[in-house]
Amino acid sequence: MKALRGLPHPLLSLLLTVIWLMLVNTLSFGHLLLGAFLGWAIPLLCRDFLIEVPRVRRPLQLGLFVLKVFGDILVANLAVAKLVLGPKERLNPAFVEVPVAIEDKFVLAVLTSIISLTPGTVSADLSADRRTLLLHALDAPDPGQLAAEVKRRYEAPLLEIFQCSPT
């Protein structure tokens, strides 16, 4: 997306306009105008705080990935419900260290959020050099397998979708 001078983040502007229209819950012309104004003014006013979002290389794959994550959230929630209601002695909580290859700030934030949202794992900490992620898992009989699973299911698609090669 080419950045224009008066409109530094076109996609963010569009998103803000849509959110404003959802908030007032109408589609009248006046609110469309006001939403467009807000979408123009807010990114300009806080452009110093915004971080660079890497270019999406494969939009179609991004859509599929979002759907897959939502499916995982639903399925894994059922699994966690079973764990929570089952006997306490069967739980195997563990802290797991996962090496991450993602360098970009934004993509890393997306990855940690996805890990926290998929039940059974919470991302607890990130090492200072941004190379290792500390997870807490509710039930991990095999920590090594969990780390491999996270890398395969979420990190690899993210790396593929966003243009940020690990090396």
């Binding site: 966690v80 039940p119 807490h136």
Partner: peptide, 24 residues
């Protein structure tokens, strides 16, 4: 289920799992 998890799981880190996701 989230509230039950918060109530009966043994330590803080495991309790963190219930509310943040099931409740959401």
């Amino acid at each position: 289920v989230g509230a039950i998890g918060l109530y009966r799981l043994p330590d803080f880190y495991t309790r963190l799992h219930g509310p943040t996701k099931a409740t959401t």
